[in-house]
Design a binder for these strands. Sequence first.
DNA 1: CAAAATACTTACTTACCAGTAAGTAAGCAA
DNA 2: TTGCTTACTTACTGGTAAGTAAGTATTTTG
Lengths: 184, 184
Amino acid sequence: MTVMKDKIVSLADKLIRVKGFNAFSYKDIADPLEVKNAAVHYHFPSKADLGMAVVAGEMERFRHNVQQWKPLPEDEQLGRLFDVFRKHCYAGNVCLMGSLAPDYETLTPGMQEKVSDMAEAILEWVTDCLENGRQHKRFHFKGSAGDRALLVISNLQSSLLMARVMGTDTFDRISRQLLEDLRS
Amino acid sequence: MTVMKDKIVSLADKLIRVKGFNAFSYKDIADPLEVKNAAVHYHFPSKADLGMAVVAGEMERFRHNVQQWKPLPEDEQLGRLFDVFRKHCYAGNVCLMGSLAPDYETLTPGMQEKVSDMAEAILEWVTDCLENGRQHKRFHFKGSAGDRALLVISNLQSSLLMARVMGTDTFDRISRQLLEDLRS
DNA sequence: CAAAATACTTACTTACCAGTAAGTAAGCAA
DNA sequence: TTGCTTACTTACTGGTAAGTAAGTATTTTG
């Protein structure tokens, strides 16, 4: 990936999180980077190509993160995931899933697949994290790890959405509660 | 409200839930109703006016519902709220908050206020429901009722989003877990 | 050194969007 | 029956959207 390509994806990522996929245009990317919209089309012929690159970038960061967290105890691993979301909250972002899921029906099949893959990858990781954490007595919860993981992800996702509407402390109230529930 | 006005709001409601506020146009409303887009502008001069009418309609339904649920025990009242969301899930809808929150930064101040009011009204009701339910020993949970209510709402909201990406049973897995947690 | 690939710009197209101005048919009201 | 209101239609505007074709400067490569 070239420098410009990186800049475009990074800006698109921010725009998707702040304005939503259908509310930003190539102009919103071209202007700040001081190029013409055709330059953006050169790197990403269609908006769906750009969207898929953004999702792919997020997936790569996620995989890199969980790899680095591996030596940590499970409760701390999950805490790191919460930290990622907390940073997004303070930056005024929502998560990619939270932004793209409402627009899901308007996305190309290619993008839908990428979004769906992302959801499954995160769910799988949280499920394993919870399952292992329970075995090591670091987490305590009823029901299956998979169901509990859905609950955790769903909370992380919409706490960012609610924080946007009701203020940033909404995120902290939800995530604190959630972590406390799991630890006791 | 005239018949046509009702039809427009009802169609707009569906479009917001399925495609998102920024992804539907006046044409999407005018065509199925077999009128011209100017007719829609006649009833709702700007798209924000239409959006606010949709939110107001949802608020009215919500107020009407909770009024009707009042005689029920609190756990059943909350169950009814879950039923409303479940029906949306099966209809392929997300909730209004789930759809409008990601687009929040692109909304007019007037719409932002309506969305914010809606969020607070729902939070207030769920908080009271949980608080009263706990006093009557029908709910059991740690922490404040307000924080717990945030968790409940956040789960309802994003379970609809996740259901869209991962399939409808996602909603049931999350909501079942959530209700069981509260009852025991 | 020539050819080819890279990374754009210029200039454009097609399509759609929200919104509006002006007109009209039907109904009601004094 | 005249005037006013309601509920539209017709016809349009200005703006913006995604996307493209053709050209150009720069770098890379055989």
